[in-house]
């Protein structure tokens, strides 16, 4: 904030001796005010990103300090959005740092009335077991006319449309190879 190394004495003295007789500005400035700087300026790094909400694809700049996102704002370089964001895009820092976000695996047993904890690795292990089990049980090799089916109709997937292309690619690739055909997306809705 520029040349702000003024002495901070009793502001009344400043009023009497300086130009700010009525105590409106220069005389009353606090040390904190004088040293204000935006947290974008003190961030460790800025990462270019894209807004996760609608399909306009607005550019975002993600400011990181101490490995935490401290600010997300529009990227003025983007020829799509020219630095602007809608209310959802403007809230994306809260989306990321939301205290309501659940960050551990939750598991509900059949017929249970509440969640319980489950380690992530164990969850993936259990899910792969469930998938193989259902797949084996519901496998259709051919239809009644002998036409090849090679699939399971016992498993389905419905994805949101905020998944990355790379993610969709692995999802489609893995499920298709596994014979899961009911792979669907918000794009249908």
């Amino acid at each position: 904030m520029g040349a702000r190394n003024r002495r901070r004495s009793w502001p009344v003295l400043g009023q009497l001796t300086g130009a700010d007789r009525l105590g409106r500005g220069a005389a009353v400035e606090s040390a904190r005010t004088a040293s204000l700087s935006p947290r974008t300026a003190t961030a460790d790094r800025v990462v270019q990103s894209v807004c996760p909400y609608c399909a306009v694809g607005c550019g975002q700049r993600v400011y990181v300090k101490n490995e935490k996102v401290v600010q997300i704002e529009g990227d003025p370089d983007s020829p799509i959005s020219r630095g602007r964001l809608c209310p959802k895009g403007s809230a994306s820092e809260q989306l990321v740092n939301n205290p309501n976000r659940v960050t551990s695996v939750r598991y509900r047993r059949p017929y249970a009335t509440d969640w319980e904890d489950l380690p992530l690795d164990r969850a993936v292990d259990m899910i792969s077991d469930r998938l193989l089990d259902t797949r084996a049980r519901t496998w259709q090799e051919a239809d009644k006319d002998g036409n090849k089916l090679r699939r399971t109709m016992g498993i389905a997937s419905l994805g949101g449309a905020t998944l990355d292309n790379e993610e969709n690619y692995l999802i489609k690739k893995l499920f298709t190879a596994a014979g899961v055909v009911q792979v669907e997306n918000q794009a249908r809705i």
Partner: peptide, 20 residues
């Protein structure tokens, strides 16, 4: 289109009737 990569999820489809 309504979502960040809804176009992408049609191009690289997570849709039952399409391959990429």
């Amino acid at each position: 289109r309504g979502h960040a990569s809804i176009q992408g999820s049609t191009d690289i489809p997570t849709l039952f009737n399409l391959l990429p």
